[in-house]
């Protein structure tokens, strides 16, 4: 029983990512609401990679990314590649974030997430053969950045009471 509970706890990060991938695409009563919805999956991947990278295996992240591609309609492999890249870049900087204040982590997130969102925009434009507008992804980036503190607060609680 203890083993089952322990295994269940270890899967909490993956479950949060899966749920977010599904919930973030649920149809709301207005399409405009999606314009201001933050990219929570990037926040969650960044957080778990910094604080519990052992619970975010790259293969699982890849599969969640593929699921995100199917949901979002992006070319299959695009979000999977972005998630792996996000994990890889965050892992290289992880030692810098550990033990530092929250604002340092937030600043690090702002740089890494800006890079990821720019890359998604470039790749989507490359496959479409045409440039899309910049303002919507920029708004999404700003909202994601502003949502980071509240999302991190929740994730800290989840880690404290469910995982560790």
């Amino acid at each position: 029983m203890q083993n089952i509970l322990y295994t269940g706890r270890q899967t909490v990060p993956v479950v949060t990512m899966l749920l977010l991938a599904l919930i973030s695409s649920m149809p709301l009563s207005s399409s405009h609401a999606f314009e201001i919805f933050p990219m929570l999956n990037i926040i969650v991947i960044f957080y778990w990679t910094v604080y519990r990278p052992d619970l975010v295996p790259p293969v699982v992240l890849f599969l969640i990314g593929l699921m995100d591609d199917v949901v979002m309609g992006t070319p299959l492999g695009l979000m999977a590649g972005i998630f792996i890249l996000l994990r890889g870049v965050t892992l290289t900087q992880r030692q810098f974030f550990i033990g530092k204040s929250f604002y340092v982590t937030w600043l690090g997130f702002s740089i890494i997430s800006a890079f990821c969102i720019c890359l998604i925009w470039v790749l989507v434009a490359l496959f479409a053969g045409r440039l899309g507008i910049v303002i919507t992804p920029f708004i999404k980036y700003v909202i994601t950045l502003l949502s980071f503190p509240s999302a991190a607060w929740l994730l800290v609680r989840i880690q404290r009471y469910l995982v560790d």
């Binding site: 695409s25 649920m26 149809p27 399409s31 999606f34 309609g73």
Partner: peptide, 14 residues
């Protein structure tokens, strides 16, 4: 409609 892609990078629905 069972899902919406989100609007920033793609606009499609399932």
């Amino acid at each position: 409609i069972i899902s919406y892609s989100g609007g920033a990078f793609t606009r499609s629905i399932l």
